[in-house]
Nucleic acid binder design. Structure first.
Lengths: 205, 205
DNA sequence: CAACATATGTTAGCAGTACTAACTTAGCAA
DNA sequence: TTGCTAAGTTAGTACTGCTAACATATGTTG
């Protein structure tokens, strides 16, 4: 340590950076995680990559197109985590479904700025086809888990409706938690406990 | 119509506007509603009020302090709406509680940018004492409604825990709806139906 | 009523942003 | 080697929030 040359992002000292696109994506991810997407500036990412503020426009349409890349990788990450949580408890079990929900909240807590980008309101990101597809794939996993649960426990009812109810609850928990709203009005709440308590009721037809 | 003089916000043609503070708040509210808090600029509000961009700083610490005012009035509005929804069906009834939840979502849908300001992540707004107090008052209403329901229906369980579960679900529904996430993943969902379907399960101890 | 004090406006300017246009350099291909 | 093109650069536009210094109205007080 001690050499503050940002070698992780900089090129090889040449006029042409060489892998600027990937460097900018990594720099952006780091800055978004550190300071939030609201306070992220493309200019900062440029400084981190050791490049002029006009350089990104050779690789990206605009600021949003870089963020799309971050969101896409976020969905990958989340899908993998929730998949692991489910499998750790068995596919058709209540415990597995609860673990999935808790993994969702854990992701929101650990990767808050990424989570906000993934589910936030930016209409540009919402329209990106890659992003849409990955969001759908994420819920499809939940639906399959609920279907397995219903089949194993003799619950009759629309699995996708139940899945959306679960998602809604868990998403609400994640949002209120990371936005600091529980702290304001119900500071003593334990989100994981609450999810475990609510899941059985939500899983009934 | 036809006279585009913004008379609603402008002063009386004098050097001193007269009621600039209130004019700026109303202009800000209008602009936030129209274009979202993300795209709101204080400079726009100044133009709408017919005043220089430095003028607001005689009345507000900074941009955030104007927004706090918007949030405070938003909580007033929401509290009144949900109170009416509850009373329309009777204080201790399931229908009343469902109606409260639906009113929450309706508020989020109709006043989306205000709702986002109220429950969003801005740490400055979270710290404002007035805002905190009004948030607490809002949930206190829900807790009282749940207590009345529990008393009337012989449910034993912590009413505030149940209230937080309800809030969590309804907030998740509002968030996913206004952020356009249902559209991406489950476009056919009817949020009001879903709330009515989920409420009984969430109200059990 | 005049003079001053203060509240509330103004203009000018700073530092920062996203993004564009025109120019330059490097790397590759004929 | 020549020259084309991809990928950098600098310089500049138009915007932002906010501050400092200056100007003007308003109201209080001798």
């Amino acid at each position: 340590m001690g050499h503050d040359d940002k070698s992780e992002f900089r090129g090889k000292g040449r006029y042409h950076h060489g892998e600027l696109r990937e460097s900018l994506i990594r720099a952006t991810r780091q800055l978004v995680v550190e300071k939030g997407a609201e306070n992220f500036s493309l200019a900062d990412a440029c400084r981190l990559a050791g490049v002029s503020t006009a350089a990104p426009y050779r690789h990206f349409r605009d600021k949003d197109e870089i963020l799309e890349e971050i969101v896409a990788r976020g969905f990958d990450d989340m899908a993998e985590r929730s998949g692991r949580a489910l499998l750790a408890h068995g596919a058709g079990t209540l415990a597995g479904i609860i673990a999935m929900g808790q993994a969702y909240v854990a992701f929101a807590k650990e990767e808050t700025p990424i989570f906000r980008l993934m589910f936030g309101q930016d209409p540009v990101l919402k329209k990106a086809v890659e992003v849409r597809a990955q969001g759908q794939a994420c819920l499809a996993k939940v639906i399959m888990a609920v279907e397995a649960y219903c089949a194993a426990n003799g619950v009759k009812g629309d699995a996708s409706f139940i899945a959306v109810k679960l998602w809604t609850f868990v998403h609400g928990a994640a949002s209120l938690l990371i936005d600091g709203d529980y702290v304001v009005v119900a500071p003593e709440i334990d989100v994981n406990t609450m999810i475990a308590a609510a899941a059985p009721g939500l899983l009934k037809g």
